[in-house]
Computed example of a mutant assay.
Amino acid sequence: MDHATTRATIIPEIVRLISEEYKISEKEALDKFYTSATGASFSDDDTGLYGQSALFIFGLFREEYEQQK
């Protein structure tokens, strides 16, 4: 499976987790994820983050988001 396909299968779960955790719409969750450093790393093939679980990536996002508050 190529990296784009792997990311496409993980994204819905990450977005669901963010949406549920922060009580926001899935669109808002998607926007927050893709404008975060975690989202940027997830999109970069060189980081290998695309190969991690949705829960792991969500944990990174949550840590980043909480530090920004």
Rank of each mutant, 00 (worst) to 15 (best):
D31K: 15
F56G: 00
E66L: 12
T6K: 14
A54P: 02
D2M: 08
R16Q: 12
T6Y: 11
L55N: 10
L55S: 11
F33H: 06
S43E: 09
L60Y: 11
L55Y: 09
R16L: 09
L17F: 03
T35D: 07
T6L: 13
G48F: 06
Y34W: 09
Y65M: 04
R7P: 09
Q68F: 07
D31Q: 13
L55Q: 14
A29S: 14
E26C: 07
D45W: 02
K27P: 01
T47V: 07
D31I: 14
A54V: 00
I10G: 01
F33P: 08
E64W: 00
M1Y: 09
E28R: 10
F61I: 05
Y22E: 12
Y34R: 03
G51M: 11
H3C: 10
F61R: 03
Y34M: 12
S36M: 05
A37K: 13
K32T: 13
L17W: 02
E26M: 07
I18E: 08
H3N: 15
S36R: 03
E66R: 09
A4M: 08
F58I: 01
I18G: 05
D31N: 13
G59Y: 04
F56R: 04
I11Y: 10
T38W: 00
H3I: 15
E26A: 07
A40K: 14
L60E: 12
A37M: 09
E66P: 02
Q68S: 11
G59T: 08
I14Y: 00
I10N: 07
D45A: 12
G39K: 05
E13T: 08
